[in-house]
C-alpha cells in the first residue's frame, strides 16, 4: 500500500498545499514583527490572487485580440506585478488606518478580509462579463507559464527529481523568501530595528528609529508577500481558474502557522508543509470515513491552540508574540 511513490506523492501534495500558506505566514510574520496584527491577511491573499487573474486575463485578452500567442515570460511578469500591486494597496489601506489613524487593528483587519473576499469573488465571477463573455475564467497560457517545471532537474534525478523539482517556480520563491526574511530579521540592522519596533516602539523611537515608517514598510511588504500566496493558488494550484470561496480558510491557516512557527520564518517553511500535509492527509490515509477525515482537517487548528497555550504557560521570552502586537503607537508631541 504505502509505496515510496505513494509517500512521495503525498509529500509533493503537502508542499503544493503548504506553499500558499507559507507565503501568507511569512508575510504575516514580517507584519507582526512590526507590532501589527493584520487579520486582513486572508483578504489580502484573495486580492493577490484576483489581481493576478485580472492582470493575466488582460494580457491574454490583448494577445487574443491582436492575434498573437502570449509570451510565457510576459504572462508571468504581468500577473506577478498585478498581484503585487493589488495586495500592496490593500496592505497600504491597513497601514494608513492602523498606523496613521491609529484605528483598532482587529476591526480594520476583519473589515479588510470582508472587503478582500468580496472583491475577489466579485471579479472572479464578473471579469468575463465585462468583455461580453460567458463561462468561467481559465487562463491557459499564464497558468502554463506558472506551472513550468525546472527543465533539467525534474526529469534527470529520478523519483527525487520528480518529487522536488517538478513544481512551478513560485514554490521555490516561497522558500527563498522565507529564508531571506529569516536572514533579514536575524542578521541585518534593519531587521533588528524592525524587531525592536514590534517589541518596544517607545524604545525604538528613542533610539532614533522611524517607528511609523518601519510599520508601514513591514506591513506593505508583508502584504505583498502574502498576496503571492493567493497568486500561487490561482495560477498553479487552480490552473488559472477561479472558484468562489475556493481559497477557503487558508488565510486563517496561514495566521495559525505564524503562531505554530513561533514567529520564525525558517520554522514556517516546514510548518507550512506539515499544515499543507494535514490539510490533505485525510485523502491519503486509507479507510477513513468522511467524518473522520474532517477530524483530521481540524488538527492544524487544535495543534496551533495547544502551541499557543503551551507557549503562554511556559513564558519563555523568545517564544512570545511581539510584545506590542495589536497596539498602536502614539508619541505625544507638545
Amino acid at each position: 500500500m504505502f509505496t515510496l511513490e505513494y509517500l512521495m506523492g503525498f509529500v509533493a501534495t503537502a508542499i503544493i498545499n503548504g506553499t500558499p500558506l507559507l507565503f501568507g505566514a511569512v508575510g504575516e510574520i514580517l507584519t507582526e514583527k512590526s507590532g501589527n496584527l493584520n487579520l486582513g491577511i486572508p483578504g489580502i491573499m484573495y486580492i493577490g490572487g484576483i489581481s493576478g487573474i485580472i492582470g493575466g486575463f488582460l494580457y491574454e485578452h490583448a494577445c487574443e485580440t491582436a492575434g498573437i500567442t502570449p509570451i510565457p515570460i510576459l504572462c508571468i511578469i504581468v500577473a506577478l506585478l498585478a498581484s503585487l500591486l493589488g495586495s500592496t494597496l490593500i496592505a497600504l489601506v491597513y497601514s494608513f488606518l492602523t498606523i496613521t489613524l491609529k484605528a483598532n487593528q482587529n476591526v480594520v483587519g476583519l473589515a479588510l478580509t470582508t472587503l478582500g473576499v468580496g472583491l475577489g469573488d466579485f471579479y472572479g465571477g464578473s471579469l468575463l462579463s465585462f468583455f461580453g463573455k460567458d463561462g468561467s475564467i481559465y487562463l491557459e497560457a499564464t497558468s502554463k507559464a506558472f506551472k513550468e517545471k525546472i527543465p533539467f532537474l525534474s526529469d534527470s534525478l529520478g523519483l527525487f527529481g520528480q518529487t522536488f523539482f517538478s513544481f512551478g517556480f513560485l514554490v521555490y520563491v516561497a522558500v527563498i523568501i522565507a529564508v531571506i526574511v529569516h536572514f533579514f530579521l536575524k542578521k541585518t540592522r534593519v531587521g533588528l530595528n524592525l524587531r525592536a519596533v514590534g517589541e518596544n516602539p517607545a524604545t525604538a523611537d528613542a533610539a532614533g528609529i522611524n517607528v511609523n515608517l518601519y510599520k508601514y514598510l513591514a506591513t506593505c511588504i508583508g502584504g505583498a508577500i502574502a498576496g503571492l500566496g493567493g497568486l500561487y493558488f490561482v495560477m498553479d494550484y487552480s490552473v488559472g481558474g477561479w472558484t468562489n470561496g475556493g481559497f477557503g480558510d487558508r488565510g486563517w491557516l496561514a495566521i495559525a502557522i505564524v503562531i505554530f512557527a513561533l514567529w520564525r520564518p525558517n520554522t514556517a517553511i516546514l510548518s507550512s508543509y506539515i499544515f499543507g500535509g494535514l490539510y490533505v492527509a485525510s485523502s491519503y490515509i486509507m479507510g477513513l470515513s468522511g467524518s473522520e477525515k474532517e477530524i483530521i482537517k481540524m488538527l492544524p487548528y487544535i495543534v496551533t491552540i495547544i502551541v499557543l497555550v503551551f507557549v503562554s504557560a511556559r513564558k519563555k521570552r523568545e517564544h512570545q508574540p511581539p510584545a506590542s502586537l495589536g497596539l498602536s503607537y502614539f508619541r505625544e508631541e507638545r
Partner: peptide, 27 residues
Amino acid sequence: IHQHFKLVDLFSAAENVVLGLDGEGRF
C-alpha cells in the same frame, strides 16, 4: 540615559547597543 531604561528586553546587550544605528545593512 533615562531614569526608565529604554531597552528592548528580548535583545542582548550588543543588539541594544547598535539599535537604530545606520551602517552596513548586514552586521
